[in-house]
Design a protein around this nucleic acid. Structure first.
Lengths: 141, 141
DNA sequence: GATGTTCATGAGAATCATTCTCGCACAGCG
DNA sequence: CGCTGTGCGAGAATGATTCTCATGAACATC
């Protein structure tokens, strides 16, 4: 502490490494929510092997920086996806994982008003709709 | 059966056991979401010792029968709470865990319509609003 | 009440995602 | 070019949840 220590708490002051770049690039190409395990396997499959611990660590930091959306599926696994610029929710197929983004201003307002009425502040809401998409409904399991 | 059947309200022919009754009774007294581990500890504390596996199994069956609400906290732990008769969502204080139930017919309709428009069937939705309640906002952390 | 079938129970092992440990490598800086 | 601290990774640790399977209880029947 006695040494000159500005500690600039810079969110973007992350080092640029091969592993981090590979993960960010992969996420850039994907449109659906994928689990950490999944992303790890995909990286390995494409030749950009990255340690599992690193995947988790990097994912965590990206979430902290607000660059990723996290979703917790009903089986307790966390799924990640790059953040869209605008706020939105998802319609997720519980069979094939296909995701449709849906915007819904009314719900936004509703959540805010509801929270305010009960004295809640610093509000966040989480709206996910799960179902079986048309393709999976017709396809035999 | 010759005696008048008290009808234990078993929806799907579940056997009435001491363990199941104890868990149901406990849930009946609680108003907040509690984790399975938590419920297990509470049962043991009050003398109604029940195996952990049984707690999970019973909780699962109650959820299947629609008698419990499940919530997945951000750390991946599942929390259970008895279900209100009508469908509703929650406003949860992320600091003290206090929960407020909120009904919202508009959102129900919106989710159903949205899903239908995209060809999704067998739809379920999950809406949770997290925030800091009035008490926790004023109180120092 | 006695009895047999079947399902629930529970102790511990197994599973699985996620996090931690800690020695080593490398990015960024002088 | 060499320092220094941060990021990496293999494997161990953690912790919640699920599975295994022998035992016991619940319910219908006799």
């Amino acid at each position: 502490m006695t040494v000159g220590d500005p500690a600039p708490a810079d969110l973007s002051g992350r080092r640029s490494t091969r592993q981090r770049s590979a993960l960010v690039a992969l996420l850039e190409e994907l449109d659906e929510f994928r689990s950490a395990q999944d992303l790890h396997a995909l990286l390995r499959a494409r030749g950009d092997a990255v340690g599992l611990a690193t995947v988790y660590r990097t994912l965590q930091s990206l979430v902290d920086d607000g660059q990723l959306d996290v979703l917790r599926s009903t089986d307790g696994e966390a799924a990640y996806r790059r953040c869209s610029p605008s706020h939105h929710h998802h319609l997720v197929c519980r069979s094939c994982g296909r995701t449709v983004e849906v915007a819904d201003p009314p719900v936004e307002r509703w959540a805010a008003r509801m929270a305010a009425e009960h004295g809640f502040t610093d509000v966040q809401h989480q709206v996910e709709v799960f179902g079986t998409c048309a393709a999976c409904t017709t396809a035999p399991s």
